[in-house]
Write a protein that binds this DNA or RNA. Structure first.
Lengths: 336, 336
DNA sequence: ATGAAAGCGCTAACAC
DNA sequence: GTGTTAGCGCTTTCAT
């Protein structure tokens, strides 16, 4: 298993290893014959460039770190897919690290990335506090945050316009004739969730509706949590015709709880989600939702990071992506 | 952004950089005072070990390559999650590469891994032919295949017992009183699928049933494909009371097609899947299925790889994991 | 057109 | 206990 090095090839070809290096790197100052001879020999010997050694000199690893709460999450694995493909298009490979379950683990992941000398890091943060948590290391290398809005924090990020997203959603439900819309699942401690809730409240205010918000204390959204919360909620209240769930996961959890309570969607209550995870499009789910354009977000995040790497631009930038309403079958028109 | 090196710390502490190296690596041959002084200084200066430089000497990168057709696939992202967590437990980080869409891309990914000097590679192969495709590089470094059965190919792998899995499934359906079971979606070119189909046939034979198999030409399973295939199938045949789908994705696609044709599951036909992807447990899907124990498979694969790395064991090993039947609501007992 | 030599940041073998 | 030195595999001046 001993790897073949430049020296080995040089010896076999009876030239200096500098010459071999030049032949392989396509340096023009070399005769055609020797180049081809060397290329053939190195091919035969199964030579492969040692990126590690090259990195030492070039001070570039062509590696990007991706830190994600848990790759085992449909939303994040979709994002990660587009990130990987885009990064590769720009000549970078990915080191992947799950930051689950806490900020401490996220910090460790960041340290690892620095240690491995990645050229930059893309972070899908656990929550808004991640930014402060990682600050020390983020200042050491190009860092871009993806998916969480980090307004007023000194960081570069790509995020969907959450505020506009919920406004869009409320307006849509209003247009369908809904006047009592419950906002379900505002997670405390997340700027993203705060912005979504604010957009909801503002739209309600603009349209003369009364806002009603169910808050979650937990730090992660999941179908299970949505289900649990919905069980108690659905048994207590009934003064709404539509539910705007803060995430698709919450919406799907609520769907399950509703079904168990004999509440039909959309006949009895309309349901609107946020994110547009793959699940939402399943015919068995068929959830109308406000979409985060995942591919666009991933591509823009990678581009922003690569730009930072190339130009060593310091200072923070951000880009807010327009959300998009995806109509499916979970909302009923009750104005007719 | 200039990184702090051992030399910088040494200069600041007025010692040789070897001493700093020793202090940081916990070498005992050093006085307590200097160690603590150095530790404090390096901490203050924000020193982080350059793993790249260390790798050059140790000839170990503590990196494992993970090659996966597409991380954007629920089954694979679950597997990848467990792989990452387990690898980290053993002190390894992951370089992730999607091999989609073809064998050529898979080969490129493998080359990249070799170039980055990963200590070993874990491959979730696109198909059985992947093994031959990657042979040249796989022989250069510890390689373990995950999820595809590579019987008779000179490779180490972890796979579920596909043959037993389908036998289990058929026996279960038989116990429920089904005598006409259609096997839906045998993918040609995949040993895994061939084994599943063989298990089905054998169980049918043992139980005196007549096997009926629908083959797929495509090289990937997906809900969409299952849907398309099911549409034509459901309109043509009707001589079965149960469908055993080769994968959960196919099963879910079929569910959708069935619903559109007014065929109810499980009232009109029973449906059994294979894999146990997350989706299957959604109440809206509620698919009875033969499970691949994903965590167990991932853990065993990482352990096998780490063992190969540690002991440079050559030769191929394999381990076949027992499948497990997960009862949910998509199969009807028609013997009563 | 080719070779020699320096050096990236670190570890390890060897001095003292 | 601490310092000196060599060298991992490669790229990049600087000679020739």
């Amino acid at each position: 298993m001993g790897k073949v090095t430049l020296k080995d090839v040089a010896k076999a070809a009876n030239v200096s290893f500098t010459t071999v290096s030049r032949a392989l790197s396509g340096n023009p100052e070399i005769s055609k014959e020797t180049r081809e001879r060397i290329l053939k020999i190195s091919e035969e010997m199964g030579y492969t460039t040692n990126y590690i050694a090259r990195s030492m000199i070039k001070k570039k690893t062509e590696l990007i770190g991706l830190i994600v709460p848990s790759i085992d999450n449909p939303f994040m694995s979709e994002l990660a897919y587009y990130v990987e493909v885009t990064a590769r298009r720009f000549g970078y490979n990915l080191i992947l690290c799950n930051s689950y379950p806490d900020l401490n683990q996220e910090l460790k992941a960041m340290q690892l990335m620095v240690g491995h000398q990645v050229d930059g890091v893309l972070v899908i943060p656990q929550k808004s506090a991640s930014c402060g948590n990682l600050m020390k290391y983020a200042s050491m290398l190009p860092t871009v945050y993806l998916s969480e809005n980090l307004r007023d924090q000194d960081a570069s990020y790509i995020s969907v316009d959450n505020h506009q997203g919920t406004m869009l959603g409320v307006e849509y439900l209003h247009r369908l004739g809904h006047r009592n819309i419950l906002y379900f699942g505002c997670r405390v401690g997340s700027i993203t969730h705060r912005l979504r809730a604010e957009g909801y409240k503002q739209a309600c205010h603009d349209l003369g509706l009364e806002p009603k918000i169910v808050y979650f204390e937990s730090s992660a959204s999941s179908i299970e949590l949505g289900y649990e919360m919905a069980r108690s909620e659905l048994s207590q209240r009934s003064d709404f015709t539509a539910v705007f769930a803060s995430t698709d996961s919450n919406a799907i959890g609520l769907m399950q709880a509703a079904r168990e309570s004999g509440i039909r969607i959309p006949e009895d209550i309309s349901l609107l989600g946020f994110d547009n995870i793959r699940l939402a499009s399943l015919p068995q789910i068929d959830l109308t939702t406000v979409a985060q354009p995942k591919e666009e977000m991933a591509v823009k995040a990678v581009k922003m990071l690569v730009d930072k790497i190339d130009h060593r631009t310091s200072g923070s930038a951000f880009e807010i992506i327009k959300p998009e309403l995806i109509e499916r079958g979970s909302c009923r028109n009750c104005s007719v």
